[in-house]
Design a protein around this nucleic acid. Structure first.
Lengths: 233, 233
DNA sequence: GGCAATCCTTGATCTGCCGCAAAGCGGCAG
DNA sequence: CTGCCGCTTTGCGGCAGATCAAGGATTGCC
């Protein structure tokens, strides 16, 4: 019995299009790996030597300028695919935000396997197209939205993404009204293209306006979703 | 003889992985279409009903906020692929920047054809992955670079992308030092997340510093590439 | 429990870009 | 040639968010 048989993302990750024989073959070239929060799997500019499926936890994709300004260009959740198949180098670092469990493949092995299994490439294509849509939507936020709109949009997005990851309330995942952020204030700034101080000020202001509540450092509670949506623009 | 036989992007577009029988089949479901500068092929929020290959010209992909702020999320060049296969709606408008010639397919036809031709999907996957890399790099620019860095980066990118489109100097395309911008100042602002005035001021300043020259409205000449690269950060 | 390290908040000041307004420039029609 | 129209440039405040600087809250470790 391969590890895939008990894998929690077996039916949602790119593996979902494969039959049991194919899964067994894929299982042969992959291996499980644990990452601690803060540990990196890939560094910006590295040779692209590995790709992976996320089984558990959250990771960030980030780039930076030469003088140290960082930007988080993506966040991945369980069942998402990470790494750059069919390419020589990786343009961004991949770092665990929480403790994470991933299923890694040597890129060369994966590329070969993918070439032989169109169903897998099809899944990967769909995922990549969806990710591109999401990334382009984020560009609008980065360049045209103000600080309040950015933070409001971020909180709403977290409420939705964490729902998908956490609770499967009878089929359709429902946005959470209370959750723990997997990000520090600094990291929220890196996602939104803001400084830590601006993020803090915006969140405090939303708390004062009773749109949200902030029971502890990482915890957020959405008190007035309609108002938050209005703020998101 | 199908239109594909004389197509100038036959060997660079996603069609390049197909044999002559497959090309003939694809040719059957596609048709050529001319767009004038400013004409739109797809509007934001539309049902995703068509996809296309770009044969000639340049087009922009753009989104906007409810209150009218626009952001260009991508620019496509000859041999690029546009539209959203395998998805219900399109998240951005597609508008011709110059007169353009495209090869359009009904999305349903294209989806079916792609499903039957893994080589095509493979090409499409590679292109989508590359586009995602480029988009993520652009996110860093939008959120972390200042006006001077943005404009410098933009001019360098144009010098490279136009070279690929224009002159094939014996295999390797060489960045151009003099070219005509396919964008108005307003559109440059929309790409960079700046206002038209800021773009104009930056370009004038670079002209004064003799890093570039501006012989006419749309023309740009790079005088000191090293300095421009330093400005881009 | 006490201490250090880290993260977060708050205040004060500064600056780069925006937004408005007016003038300059070039193309085009008549 | 002349006048109009759209695009671009330039000047001038104003403000959102960056930057600098303290101080407060949590967490972890001995």
């Amino acid at each position: 019995m391969s590890a895939c048989d008990t894998c929690v993302v077996r039916n949602t990750a790119i593996c979902s299009g494969l039959d049991s024989t194919e899964i067994a073959a894929l299982s042969n070239i992959g291996r499980r790996r644990w990452l601690e929060a803060g540990e990196s799997l890939v560094w910006e500019g590295d040779q692209s030597v590995l790709v992976a499926n996320v089984i558990e936890g959250m990771l960030k994709l980030s780039t930076g300028t030469a003088d140290g300004r960082e930007q988080i260009v993506g966040v991945v959740y369980p069942s998402d695919f990470i790494g750059r198949p069919f390419g020589a180098t990786t343009d961004h670092s991949i770092t665990a935000l929480t403790a994470a469990h991933v299923c890694v493949f040597a890129r060369a092995d994966f590329d070969r396997f993918a070439g032989e299994h169109p169903a897998l490439e099809h899944k990967l294509l769909q995922r990549t197209l969806a990710e591109l849509d999401r990334t382009r939507k984020w560009m609008l936020l980065l360049s045209r939205k103000n600080a309040e709109e950015k933070v409001a949009t971020f909180l709403l997005e977290m409420s939705e993404r964490l729902a998908i990851a956490d609770c499967d309330s009878g089929g359709q995942p429902v946005p959470l009204d209370a959750f723990d952020l997997p990000f520090s204030r600094q990291q929220i700034g890196d996602v939104l293209g803001l400084t830590i101080e601006t993020v803090s000020r915006q969140m405090t202001a939303m708390g004062r306006a009773e749109v949200i509540a902030l029971p502890s450092r990482r915890a957020v509670e959405i008190r007035d979703r309609a108002a938050l949506e209005a703020m998101a623009g």
